[in-house]
């Protein structure tokens, strides 16, 4: 097992950690963090699988470089939308989620 394959397997695990965070955390900033962790996991899978036989693969590296820049654009747009929601509703969570939990305090 090469170290690149280990990183690809880690990427799959990170992707699912991100998915779980995206679904389970009601706070929108956490969802954005989870989305970024998903993206990092996918990048690791792309490069790790491309290089699992030990050779460096410039094509998958270039694709991931593109992906990192696109993911920061998506993050910025998501933050702008989340902020708009905060200004309109006073909450940073999606309408209809997190209302039914009286004991839980919102994140500071």
């Amino acid at each position: 097992m090469t170290s690149a394959l280990i990183y690809a397997l880690t990427g799959a695990a990170l992707f699912l950690i991100g998915v779980a965070g995206l679904i389970l955390q009601p706070h929108l900033l956490r969802k954005i963090i989870g989305f970024n962790i998903m993206a990092s996991g996918i990048f690791l899978v792309l490069v790790g699988l491309g290089q699992r036989e030990g050779s460096v693969d410039p094509v998958s590296q270039a694709m991931v470089l593109t992906g990192i820049v696109v993911s920061v654009a998506a993050t910025a747009l998501a933050l702008a939308l989340a902020r708009r929601l905060l200004d309109l509703t006073g909450k940073m969570r999606l309408p209809g989620s997190g209302e039914g939990m009286p004991g839980k305090k919102p994140d500071a």
């Binding site: 394959l5 799959a12 699912l16 899978v45």
Partner: peptide, 17 residues
């Protein structure tokens, strides 16, 4: 959700290996 993520993770690992 956590169980489904674990199942999907196991499937992904199996596919990669």
């Amino acid at each position: 959700v956590i169980v489904l993520c674990l199942v999907l993770g196991a499937a992904l690992w199996w596919a990669m290996l």
